[in-house]
Computed example of a mutant assay.
Amino acid sequence: MTETESIVYDVVVVGAGPVGENVADRTRAAGLSTAIVEDELVGGECSYWACMPSKALLRPVIARADARRLPGLSQAVRGPLDAEAVLKRRDYMASDWKDDGQVQWLNGVGVDLHRGHGRLTGPRTVLVEGPDSSRTELTARHAVAVCTGTRAALPDLPGLAEVRPWTSREATSARRAPERLIVVGGGVVAVEMATAWQNLGSQVTMLVRGKGLLPRMEPFAGELIAQGLTEAGVDLRTGVSVTSVTREPAAGSGAPDTPAGGGNGTVVAVTDAGERIEAEEILFATGRAPKTDTIGLETVGLDPGSWLSVDDSMRVEGTDWLYAVGDVNHRALLTHQGKYQARIAGAAIAARASGGADEESAAWGAHAATADHGAVPQVVFTDPEA
């Protein structure tokens, strides 16, 4: 049986994306010993599968669109994008999916990195099971911060796993443009990835269950983006639901085409109207779910897989030691808002750890997150941008 090593810190952070990094940075700067746990890449979703690669894919599209509207320049940019060059720059912006630079930053600020899957085993205790089968028990004197973010939420369609659909991860890391791409959904990921891949050479068909795009924004924004997508060549269909999906294998099919999903053969999507639509790949951009199902919430009286409700200092309601920062608390699923919350949480943890005469007043008075209730800026990188 593998021996378990035990280490005590002031603060343990689970999840080393931008949110976890910012919590750890703030608590470490306050003089608290801090450990961070990560089972994938340090830097998280934003650095490798969301903000950075998606904007790298979209920047040439939007720059070309702007140039085409400028007299004196428009005729010079009429040709297609160089998809290979765009993807190469995307790889560079995603650090080729290597986290050496971010690990170096953690070392520079004095935060200990523990690689592996972290899960709570009780109050203030996190067990890390490493890729080499090692086991390390981390105990926090003051606080544990859950910063595990979200994952793509897929619909309950029979056989969907066998189809190997794209999620946001595959859509931002694919090595080539599929000849045909079906995009299911009408939210931010759907419209941004439809914009990117249509302009990189795919024929995109969008299947939107609702009446329009970007339902959380003013209707005119979705209308203008729908017009832009249609003008770019996207086959946009609203009021359509997908009832079944299958993948018909190609003769002599080989390895998947993308780093983390997709495959050879033809995807066949059938709609509620009985229409059959074929493509090489299908992207489901149908929402997000919290990555809290395997982190041991049940050991501290919370429901696995649930969003975590917090107060304005990001402390989980009903506890005096557990914090949930960023997407997992469902306040604002945006990186910049998560980093804002992380600065609040780090300061609140430090204030409470100081143990002053009125630590609760210090933590609440100076460190409370309020902008994420009603002042949440966001940009959708389409043509036009919203």
Rank of each mutant, 00 (worst) to 15 (best):
M1L: 09
T4R: 15
T4H: 10
I7W: 00
V13W: 08
V19W: 09
N22S: 13
A24I: 07
R26W: 03
T27F: 01
L32Q: 02
L32W: 00
T34A: 13
A35F: 13
A35G: 15
E38C: 02
L41K: 02
C46F: 02
S47R: 01
W49N: 10
W49Y: 14
P53G: 03
S54I: 08
K55D: 10
L57Y: 01
R59N: 15
P60K: 03
V61G: 02
I62F: 03
A67I: 07
A67G: 02
G72C: 12
G72H: 07
L73G: 00
G79E: 15
A85H: 09
L87A: 05
R90N: 12
A94H: 04
K98C: 10
Q104R: 11
L106H: 14
N107M: 06
V109L: 11
V111R: 03
V111M: 03
D112E: 11
L113S: 03
L113T: 02
G122Y: 04
P131C: 00
E137D: 02
E137Q: 01
V146F: 05
T148Y: 10
P158W: 06
T167M: 04
T172R: 03
A174K: 00
R175E: 00
R175D: 02
V183C: 08
V184W: 00
G187C: 01
M193N: 12
M193Y: 04
A194E: 11
A194H: 02
T195P: 07
Q198M: 10
L200E: 08
G201C: 06
Q203V: 15
L207E: 13
P215Y: 14
R216Q: 15
M217D: 14
E223W: 02
I225L: 14
T230E: 11
G233K: 03
D235F: 00
T238H: 07
T238A: 06
R247S: 09
R247N: 11
S253K: 02
G254K: 05
P256H: 08
G263P: 01
E275N: 03
R276E: 12
R276S: 13
I277E: 05
A279P: 03
L283P: 00
F284Q: 10
G287R: 10
R288F: 01
I295H: 07
G301R: 04
D303S: 14
G305P: 12
G305I: 07
D312S: 14
S313L: 06
M314Y: 08
T319R: 05
D320R: 06
D320W: 01
W321P: 09
D327K: 04
H330F: 13
R331A: 13
R331S: 11
H336Y: 14
H336P: 07
Q337N: 12
G338A: 08
K339R: 15
A348Y: 04
R352V: 03
A353W: 04
S354E: 12
G356A: 04
E360N: 09
A363G: 11
H367C: 07
A368P: 08
T370D: 10
Q378T: 15
